[in-house]
Structures are given as C-alpha cells and as structure tokens.
Write a protein that binds this DNA or RNA. Structure first.
Lengths: 155, 155
DNA sequence: TATTGTTATACTCTATAACTATA
DNA sequence: TATAGTTATAGAGTATAACAATA
C-alpha cells in the first residue's frame, strides 16, 4: 500500500494525471527547451521567431497584422521578428497590390526548407514518443488534444 | 474534394494533427492566457509565481535550490518569487536545522488553500474539455500525455 | 574551496506610444 | 478619421555576476 503524504496527496484520477503532465509541459523552461531543441539545427530561426515562421507557413502569404493575430503576438513584435527572418533570408517582404499601406510577408525557398526541417524534427520527436502506442490510441490522442486545445484557447 | 494549397499541405495524419494542436497549446500567448485565467481568482499568485507555488505543493517543504531544480527556474528567480509569495502570506521561510546556510520554504495555511483553489480551477477546465469523452478515452489520453512528457522533457 | 541564499546588474522579450503613409 | 507598418520607448521577466554566511 502506498503511503499518503500529509503535505500533498498522491495523484490518482486520470484528470489529475492530465493536469500534472500538462502542467509540466507548459513550464516555461520545458517549453523553451523544446523550442530550442527544435530550432537548434536550423539557421536563422530561434525559439522566438519559430512561431512566426511556422504561422506564416500555415497561413500562406499574408500581412503582418493578420499573421500577428494568428500567432497571438503583437503587430510590433511580429514585424520585428519578420525583419529578423528576412535578414536570415527565410522571409520576403513585398508591396501589397490591393492596399498600398500593407506589406505582404511570404516564405522564401530557403524559408520553406527551414519549415520542412522544423516540421520533420517535431514529427520525429512525436513519432518516437508515440511509437509504443497503437494507431487507435494515437487517433484518440489526436482527437482529444484538439478538443483540449479548443476548450482552453480563446480563439 | 478538398483543394490542396500549393503553399502548405492539408494536415492529415494523426501525428501531424498532434503536432499542430500541441504547437498551438505551447504558443506563448496561449500559455500565458491559460495561466492568467487560472490565477485570476487567487490573491497573491500570478502566472509567474504559480509554478513556484505549485512546485512547492508537489515537493513539500524544501530549500530554494531544490525547488528551483524542480520547476526549471534559476535559483535567483525562485528566491525572488518566493519572496513575493511570502509577502502575500502564501509561503513561509524558516531556518534549516541541518544546514544553517539553507532556508526551508513551506506553504502557509493560506498557501495551501490557494493551491487547492488553483488545482480545482485547472481540473474544472480539464473536466469540461473532456466531458464528451468516454472514461476509457480519458485514460488513454492521460497515459499518452505522460508518455509525451517523458519523451519531450530533459529530466 | 565549495555551496546556500540573496542582492545587484545586464539582457531579452513583449507591450505601449508615437510616427509615416495610405485608405 | 481610421488603419497598416514601422520605430522608439518603457516595462516585465530572466539569467549572470557578485556578495556574505556556512559547510
């Protein structure tokens, strides 16, 4: 029989276990570590510019304002990170034909290669973590993670 | 039939879906939003001191150095946040009997109440997110999330 | 000499405010 | 007048360095 600690109780229910594991994954240091690990091998991207690059890949060519909304950053931060990525040759700026105030951001060929490498890296890590699970379990996990995201996130 | 975008492909495999959902949950803004939401109702705790308080509850009374290791923060940050929590009446400092260099940190009664409230809040959010799933699915989810955490995190 | 806790300092990230150009 | 992008400034958060006390 397990000894109960008076200070803290032993975690038992699945929901409690989810809370604990999820909390660990969200810890700042762990999140940064994961991002650093992902971006370490890709030139011009770091843990801060990664979401901007990744968001641009998801949405396709778009303006800084729309991209900012997508990745949950301020317009000013997005434009500064876009400048960093532009200097690194991963992102290109172009005048918007419809609205001359706007600037369209897009990935360069090198940017697309960087995104592909980042995705491959993340999926390799995930695949390794999930290799001992059955396809059915992975499917359940994907569906529930999406549900959790939708419940937790504002947008 | 779905139109494939030339810029980005449509997400299909479970692993890809997991990568996308997981990435969204890790986005800085979303993480901060969740933490703010959790701590909004609890006096003296905010999104930065929350991990320290929560870690102290998990580990029980301990020193600042050990707590720092647990939550992945620097010693200096941990001691400063502990000071904040002490001022708020949630954490107490006491001399360590065994090592007179050390200071033992522990939760006050008020601190324990705060932790209980924070946990209840998180579990309520999770329970709501998971209410449409079967107990078996929740169990699978818990097990796989723990696996993912163990695979992704250094410690 | 090494380690604990703490404070002081510097750096990074992010948000607020202000500026320019265009709608 | 409002909006897009950008730059400048200021505010948090965090890490590095330095200190005093003890091992």
């Amino acid at each position: 029989m397990r000894v109960l600690c008076t200070y803290d109780r032993v975690v038992t229910t699945p929901t409690e276990r989810i809370a604990v594991a999820f909390g660990a994954l969200l810890l700042r240091g762990n999140r940064a570590h994961l991002y650093d690990r992902l971006t370490a091998d890709v030139d011009g991207v770091d843990s801060t510019t990664y979401p901007v690059l990744s968001g641009l890949a998801r949405t396709g060519p778009t303006t800084a304002s729309r991209l900012a909304d997508l990745v949950g950053l301020d317009r000013t931060v997005t434009t500064r990170y876009a400048s960093r990525l532009e200097k690194a040759g991963l992102v290109a700026r172009a005048a918007d034909a419809d609205d001359r105030r706007a600037t369209r951001l897009s990935l360069t060929d090198e940017g697309r290669r960087a995104v592909a490498a980042l995705r491959a890296g993340l999926e390799a890590i995930l695949a390794e973590a999930l290799e001992t699970s059955s396809p059915e379990e992975v499917e359940v996990f994907a569906r529930m993670l999406e549900r959790l995201r939708d419940a937790l996130l504002p947008g």
